[in-house]
């Protein structure tokens, strides 16, 4: 109970200060819109083809826009040495990490929920009847991005160039999760039979479980030593 209370306090703190300033969310949503615009120049496709690559486009948008939020996550603690104040409190590294993950997760999902309908409108993609399933895929894929991103945000927080470092480090790491999410989204949006792609769910879940455990186990080493 105490564990959960403290973890949620960290998450609530991050959400509150982000909602007050809206720096990261605004930047992230604008960036998502910019990418949507750029795609329109990069591809000139028939509706059927668009649906075929929409999984990939969506997750590129999510991954790029998500990084802007993840970048802020630990950087937020730099001013006034707040990270030290948090680490000095009885909250463990794992709780701190989990709290920050939850806040990032909520923020990224919000950005996704804004960019998904915009994407559908701009590119005339009719959202699938299995929208709930697509949402599940979004939730699973986003957790992968969040866990890896928050962990590497913690690792790079004290470095020069951390804004450049984070995307370069996390995208290759995220490949398995992204492939899974892209495949599933494509299948759901095109309306192809899901049965053959069901194992991608397992890939996503496995990725999330493995890296959540690994990150929780190692984050204390990253933050304190």
């Amino acid at each position: 109970m105490k564990f959960l209370r403290q973890t949620l306090a960290v998450a609530a703190k991050d959400l509150r200060s982000e909602i007050r300033g809206k720096e990261a969310v605004n930047a992230s949503v604008s960036f998502a819109l910019v990418i949507l615009l750029l795609f329109s120049f990069a591809f000139d496709l028939e509706p059927a083809e668009i649906r075929d690559i929409s999984g990939g486009l969506l997750w590129l948008i999510f991954a790029f826009a998500g990084t802007l939020i993840l970048n802020r996550s630990f950087a937020r603690e730099l001013m006034n040495d707040c990270l030290d104040a948090l680490l000095a409190s009885p909250v463990s590294g794992a709780q701190l990490f989990l709290g920050k993950c939850l806040a990032n997760y909520v923020l990224i999902v919000i950005v996704e929920c804004i960019s998904l309908p915009v994407f559908a409108i701009f590119y005339n993609v009719r959202l699938p009847q299995r929208l709930a399933l697509l949402f599940v895929v979004m939730l699973l894929g986003t957790w992968g991005i969040t866990v890896i991103g928050t962990m590497f945000s913690a690792m790079t927080v004290n470095l020069r160039l951390r804004e450049l470092m984070l995307p370069t480090l996390i995208y290759p790491m995220l490949i398995p999760a992204l492939i899974g999410a892209i495949e599933l989204s494509r299948v759901l949006i095109t309306g192809a039979p899901l049965a053959e792609s069901l194992f991608w769910f397992r890939v996503l879940v496995a990725f999330n479980v493995i890296f959540t455990i690994l990150a929780l186990a190692l984050v204390e080493i990253v933050l304190v030593g």
């Binding site: 703190k13 509150r16 200060s17 007050r20 300033g21 001013m79 006034n80 040495d81 707040c82 030290d84 104040a85 000095a88 409190s89 009885p90």
Partner: peptide, 17 residues
């Protein structure tokens, strides 16, 4: 840590709160 109070170089409070 529950029984320690630290005052470091930075003030350790959040600007946006």
């Amino acid at each position: 840590r529950q029984r320690i109070g630290i005052l470091g170089h930075g003030i350790g409070v959040y600007e946006e709160l």
